[in-house]
Design a protein around this nucleic acid. Structure first.
Lengths: 124, 124
DNA sequence: TATACATATGAACAGATAATCATATGTAAA
DNA sequence: TTTACATATGATTATCTGTTCATATGTATA
């Protein structure tokens, strides 16, 4: 995608834009770069799978290891591991090793905040 | 919250659960129903597409009609209309008719809040 | 070292989904 | 009513994505 759409409507010979043109120009100015909006969508996409949401929610209060999660949620070890990789890549979870196990937990308060906010909308 | 005995993995002959079992039980108790988590994932899924995010963001301050959006974002009318339908269904946008045009806008502050929260995470 | 346990990963397949195209519906003005 | 404009929608297609299966890597213990 290389199309940059900075088609800002210039004021014409009449000397002033219409109300509507002004609004459209303001929207164009305030719109973040495509790249940022792409990243934003990618972030939400990670939250947008029920398996990953279940996994995230299970870690809401406590760190858990892969087998804990798989057991709790009735998921295969492989599936959990694949999803945790995605969550790691997106910086939504962090982890630490202890012996043979690896304990995962939510990366920061942001993650909790985003989930909570979505929860409010859903529970309406 | 004091140490309460719960019913899941009730203490066995030894008289008490392990620390680990207690944690796992607590997670199980606190986990919302699958149905709710499914809806939550569905909600985030809607935010999880860059076209829809662009559309939502374009309406951050002002209502816009379909053609406005298509023009602003360089998208086909059909594509915008399809996506708006999804946004309508998810209650993320509302709309009103005025003559031949239909003006769409964000449905409530929740939507703005969720986007803003995600934005913070992305901009780190 | 050999074995068992815990987690990660690659490949393949099935299901989901967004864009496009063609067309339909709805609205207003001539 | 005819025409033009604005939006919606169904079908098709190409792409993306999550799960599974098999296997690999990593770690501790006998």
């Amino acid at each position: 995608m290389a199309e940059e759409n900075n088609n800002k409507l210039q004021a014409e010979d009449k000397g002033s834009q219409t109300e509507r043109e002004e609004i459209i120009n303001r929207v164009l100015e305030q719109q973040p770069d495509d790249e940022i909006l792409y990243d934003l969508a990618e972030l939400f996409k990670v939250f947008g799978d029920s398996t990953r949401i279940k996994i995230l929610y299970s870690m809401f209060e406590h760190e858990l290891c892969v087998n804990d999660i798989a057991g709790l949620l009735n998921l295969s070890q492989s599936s959990v591991s694949h999803q945790l990789r995605i969550l790691k890549t997106s910086k939504l979870v962090k982890f630490r090793r202890e012996g043979k196990s690896i304990y995962y937990s939510l990366d920061d308060e942001h993650v909790r905040a985003i989930i909570s906010m979505g929860m409010e909308h859903v529970e309406e």
